[in-house]
């Protein structure tokens, strides 16, 4: 997944990951930025559409609030980790709380043709590009 040629793991990835781990350690109490690290987002494009993937495991899919205004996509939701009372915790790394991600997509996306699906903890939002901006084949007579 996203093993794109030419896009190798960089120091930036490690920093992002570190940031996410620290955010989850603090449980997002003081730092609302917890929402900036969860879920991680990947965006890919084809000539016909823009595909957005949000890595949001353990979320009740009915709680996703997805909206697209022009080319600004907003995904909000919450992930509640049920903590067991009286149990002793050795690790608490997972994100717990509300999140909101706002993404600016390419300008030619069509807000009327969007669909979203949730599978294996990955939310996939598929947005078609406007017809007028699709590449056209021009024949030479």
């Amino acid at each position: 997944m996203f093993a794109f040629p030419g896009l190798e793991r960089s120091l930036f990835d490690d920093l992002l990951r570190l940031q996410r781990e620290m955010e989850s350690l603090w449980g997002g109490t003081a730092i609302r930025a917890g929402a900036a690290g969860f879920p991680a987002v990947n965006v890919g494009t084809t000539a016909e559409a823009v595909d957005v993937y949000l890595f949001a495991p353990g979320v009740d899919p009915t709680t996703f609030d997805i909206s697209l205004q022009n080319n600004v996509l907003t995904v909000a939701g919450e992930r509640r980790v049920i903590r067991e009372e009286g149990a002793s915790y050795y690790r608490k790394e997972r994100f717990d709380g509300e999140f909101r991600r706002v993404l600016t997509l390419p300008e030619d996306v069509d807000p009327d043709r969007v669909d979203a699906s949730y599978s294996d903890g990955v939310l996939h939002i598929h947005v078609e590009r406007k017809e007028s901006s699709k590449p056209k084949q021009i024949k030479v007579n």
Binding site: F2, L7, N42
Partner: peptide, 20 residues
């Protein structure tokens, strides 16, 4: 192993996660 079906010929625009 991470395996997410993706459209053919897709080009990456932005990636926070490259976990495979």
């Amino acid at each position: 192993e991470v395996d997410i079906p993706m459209p053919e010929g897709m080009e990456p625009l932005y990636a926070e996660s490259r976990i495979t």
